[in-house]
Amino acid sequence: METKLLSTRILPLIILLLTGTVGITQDSLLTMLEDSSKSSQATVAVEGAFKAIHLVNTQTTESPGKKELNFIIMHRFGKLNDGAYNFFGLDNASIRLGLDYGISDRLGVGIGRSSFEKTFDGYVKYKLLQQSSGKKTVPINISLLVAVNHLTLRSDTFVSAQNKTSYITQAIIARKFSSALSLMVAPTYIHYNRYPVLRSAKEVFAATVGGRLKFTKRMAITAEYNYLIPGMLDAVDLEHSLSLGLDIETGGHVFQLVFTNSNGMIESQYIGKTNGSWGNGDIFFGFNVSRNFSFNKEKKKNW
């Protein structure tokens, strides 16, 4: 009787206990860690929806990091259809020099000067929403951009200097779908104090769609299309801005080779003043080159 009890009831218990203790091997320690990491999942920001601050012409949701300065040279040659006499556009150039600075990781400011209509621009961009995964999942990034463009080209059409200013408000909504694919949409509102051809103040609504597709770790194809709501600038011979680019990233530099039908590189120009047509070969080849400088004093630590 006693032996039977031992074999049927106690023995399995002993085996259970023995395997319970012996069974804690190295791998089950790791499994234990995995299990407890699942229960206390951290929120991880999904960073780097885009490589650079500009997709091609349009600003992305990205800004320089805190205390980081970004210097950008945006350059567009002339139209490809200018022919051999102008060396297929390479004889002409339009340029924008810009500086972007991160006040915090979410708040960025920038200034720039474009040769097109001798325009100064300044902007403030704030990231309202940061995409994240884990404990707190946020599906999208939202950045709000407010910019002022002021041209200084001497021209009789403007009457006064005040008329040469335009104001831009843009909400940039982007999602990084995977490490390769990011898409964005950006509704835009532009107020021109005086739109030159119409000789009057003008409100313009537009929407930008764009995206990037990485095909290697450091290279990506980008595209953007700026849709101008019909009727906004009917009296003017305007085209929608369509741009394609190739991003190449090397350390602190990003090189972007672009093809676009816009000569200008800031909102008031590429959205409201694009008159090149892809179909006619009014294509501007160009590049954006940016370099990142960090002013973060490396924390003194006993590494």
Partner: peptide, 24 residues
């Protein structure tokens, strides 16, 4: 026995861009 486990994304760099490049 001893075991460690960490999320690579939780490595913090003084430069944001560096952190991004590290992960991507």
């Amino acid at each position: 026995h001893i075991a460690f486990s960490m999320l690579m994304k939780q490595f913090v760099f003084p430069k944001k861009l560096m952190q991004q490049h590290f992960n991507e």
